[in-house]
Write a protein that binds this DNA or RNA. Structure first.
Lengths: 206, 206
DNA sequence: GACTCCATGTAAGTAGTTACATGATTAG
DNA sequence: CTAATCATGTAACTACTTACATGGAGTC
């Protein structure tokens, strides 16, 4: 549903073709909501069919310029005022972190440091974007700037967290995958399962 | 692909049925990678078919206990060492923020404050989880704790950012949608109207 | 006997990705 | 003339969601 609202939102500001919208996704909106060409065109067709947008002009090369209908405009305001969208639910990087203990400890630590470094690079990109860009005062750029600032702070968080986490692993005494490890615990669930039955795991990481 | 790796990852620690895995998603892993019952069962069937897991025991009520095969184990280590998963790509809340300027200013500000408050509540929940839980030293809980800490820091960030953003909107002088119609600004490309007087975008985060 | 929990599965639909296919217009 | 850019579309696939359907086992 969100792609739909993203498209409608963009069309509030000015009419545009699928191609125009695609460019806007690639340069700005895509940071928080990426979309592929095929998905955008498909969604526009659906929006047209439901009457939330309509073709108001046709240009060269079969260009179709879409504009919001009053219903589309109303729908956008409804979406903004009646729904509160939440944070992202899935975080692949944290999923991997959850299982990082299966790697040899130095590898796991390195993993976290790599993440910190990657975040630092992204941080710099975003900061220079913030400082280079013309930031006038229209709604779109004011709000775009709020979003950008979120991204910057996020990258700072990632770095700080990753360094902290690396330190935890380094100093912690959690066993690596090759040692017997978990035996301290196991109070909770019934199964003493623990990985360790086969010794070959010791060096399986690399 | 990630659900697959999440399931394999859990099965490294101990064999379990679809039902067991579902519970683990609901209580821990689901914070970073939610999954529904139907998807889990479907994925397990596929993993069984590809030989990454197999049924090692059958219990009452048709219970099937799955265990990793050596191939499944290798695949998990490959996933951990050879792929680096990235941050979430889509953030519904930020998508909405991008268009917040379409609401009357006080509504937009309120929106951000609501987000701050919701984040504060989540923060408290996570903190009490951290402080209540038994945190022994086995791999799973050590890494789970890293993930939890990320969540806590994230909620702090959300609050700080939301308050900052609300302040930006409050003090900024961009017009709300009621004042000058952006909606009337059609075909001309560069400026969808709505700007206003006063100066400074005082900048920067904290 | 009723209720809850354990346990699995399938069907229909939405959302998103990858890849292919086609052609017009413009700038050099 | 040729390469880049503008412009749209479709087909096949993977991932995820919602809803339905069924039944065994334990417990009050």
């Amino acid at each position: 549903m969100s792609l739909r609202n993203a498209l409608l939102g963009l069309l509030v500001f000015r009419p545009g073709s699928g191609y125009d919208l695609l460019k806007m996704f690639d340069t700005s909106l895509g940071y928080v909501w990426p979309a592929k060409q095929s998905q955008i065109y498909g969604e526009l067709t659906k929006l047209d069919a439901t009457g939330l947008i309509k073709v108001t002009e046709e240009g060269p090369r079969g260009r179709k310029q879409y504009s919001l209908t009053p219903e589309g405009h109303a729908e956008t305001l409804r979406w903004l005022s009646e729904t509160r969208e939440s944070r992202p639910l899935r975080n692949p990087m944290l999923l991997q972190t959850f299982f990082l203990g299966l790697l040899p400890r130095e590898d796991a630590v390195q993993r976290l440091l790599d993440h910190a470094e990657a975040s630092a690079k992204e941080h710099d990109t975003l900061v220079s974007l913030r400082d280079t860009e013309e930031w006038d005062k229209d709604m779109l750029t004011v709000c775009g700037r709020l979003v950008l600032e979120h991204g910057i702070r996020q990258r700072v968080l990632e770095q700080e967290w990753a360094h902290w986490a690396a330190e935890q692993l380094r100093s912690g005494h959690a066993e690596g995958p090759g040692t017997t490890g978990t035996e301290t615990a196991d109070a909770d669930t019934t199964d003493p399962g623990v990985v360790a039955d086969s010794t070959d795991q010791a060096h399986s990481g690399r």
